[in-house]
Design a protein around this nucleic acid. Structure first.
Lengths: 231, 231
DNA sequence: GGTTGGCGTTGATATTTGTCAATCAAAATG
DNA sequence: CATTTTGATTGACAAATATCAACGCCAACC
């Protein structure tokens, strides 16, 4: 179950957000005192699509997923969130609601930061505002790429893309323990779990990857990139 | 061909952007003098994915489409842009490049505004910054919805959604002259032109819509919404 | 007036992808 | 240790969707 504490010190936190480097010492202190740490078990929901957006979240350890609940209880994973990443959501400037859900993929520790405080910090600090804008924009660009991938590429291309994403952006190694489930891989690539499994098997038979349970190693990154590009 | 002028007065422009209501008279004058009006014929490209982003665009008359060029020359239309809408693009805060293309669907008049000027205006004007953030966020929310629609709904649901979008957001009437081509409707719903046509025919046979060439009338909005919701 | 080219339409067919049911293995539970 | 339960896997099949080819229509052009 979720446990609330406020023991950690942001200043010495190994996964502190970039924003701490852009604000004054007073503001750092303010954030430090007002934040709330909460720990979630794998599978638990951190915040839910439709709920009021009163706090933004900084992931401190573990791994989380940003996802939608769409038609027929099917989920679509937008992206995975690693420690030190900040998750706000576009509802922040629109209707104070979450437009996607955030869930813990692994056991995950997060810090909640009050929305009002965050907004105040951003709007009275031009470099920070620039940085926030830049990061939001970067996400938007990635969202566009995702949209094209999911709508124009066939399944093998999408899975190849996902494996490269996991390796480069999430686990930071060509060999990794894949902590997301097959179902989550399917939710990330917008296909059925069975299809995702079949394509993994196919990649394995063609020596693009090696897979033993959840141990994954990319053997032929060039090959995967080519499959991904072909569509 | 494109023709450059700077004759129009922003102050009296019937399709002037919301930003004019949020800036000082001096700034309005600055914008007015530095803008460049350009007219494009239907089918022409206003700016292209990958090109340098030096100006943002305000559509003054006509109709434009924001789209990506993806795999195999297939296009994906993100949204249609009506007069008075501003089109920037996320590259503005990242790499000064366009990450999508803007094309004229109908004969279209646009004003180019220098990026540096626009950024300066936004960053030194808090209410304007708020408004810009809110609009960007709204677009992001719509993008999420689009992503779910395109990946989780089947073709009839997507076409129903598109027809409702055209009626409510673009042509503002339940009966309209559909100035986008069948191919563009397909690009908007991520399917082949033939599939889009077949579904339109099906809707027509089921009296959901009436279609005579490019004259479209939504006969059963409830029905379309239900098809769209079912997926 | 013929011709060309683009767009819309249709039918036949092939491909892609999802669903369903069964099985298996590993992990959690008592 | 037996028993559930959960996630992964596989095969058979059905559904969704794309592709290809052909044709009609209309406007632009020579």
């Amino acid at each position: 179950m979720a446990v609330f504490t406020n023991l950690g010190k942001c200043d010495t936190c190994r996964s502190r957000s970039f924003i701490f480097d852009l604000i004054s010492e007073q503001d750092r202190d303010l954030l430090n005192r007002s934040k709330q740490e909460v720990s979630f078990n794998a599978g638990e929901i951190i915040f839910k699509q439709g709920a009021m957006l009163t706090h933004i979240v900084c992931v401190t350890s573990g791994l989380a997923k940003i996802y939608f609940e769409g038609v027929d209880r099917k989920n679509l994973i937008l992206r995975l969130v690693k420690p030190s990443e900040l998750v706000g959501g576009p509802g922040m400037f629109v209707d104070q609601r979450h437009h996607y859900s955030l869930g813990a993929v692994e056991d995950t520790l997060v810090c909640f930061i009050e929305l009002g405080l965050y907004r105040e910090l951003v709007f009275r600090n031009k470099p920070l505002a620039h940085e926030v804008m830049a990061r939001e924009s970067q996400h938007r660009i990635e969202l566009y790429e995702k949209l094209v991938n999911l709508t124009q590429k066939q399944m093998p291309g999408r899975v190849a893309e996902a494996l490269l994403y996991l390796s480069k952006q999430v686990y930071n190694s060509s060999k990794f323990l894949c902590t997301i489930s097959r179902q989550e891989l399917a939710d990330l690539t917008a296909m059925s779990k069975e299809s995702a499994i079949r394509i993994l098997k196919d990649f394995k038979e063609n020596n693009l990857v090696s897979i033993e349970g959840n141990q994954v190693e990319l053997l032929d990154v060039e090959g995967l990139m080519s499959v991904s590009a072909r569509g």
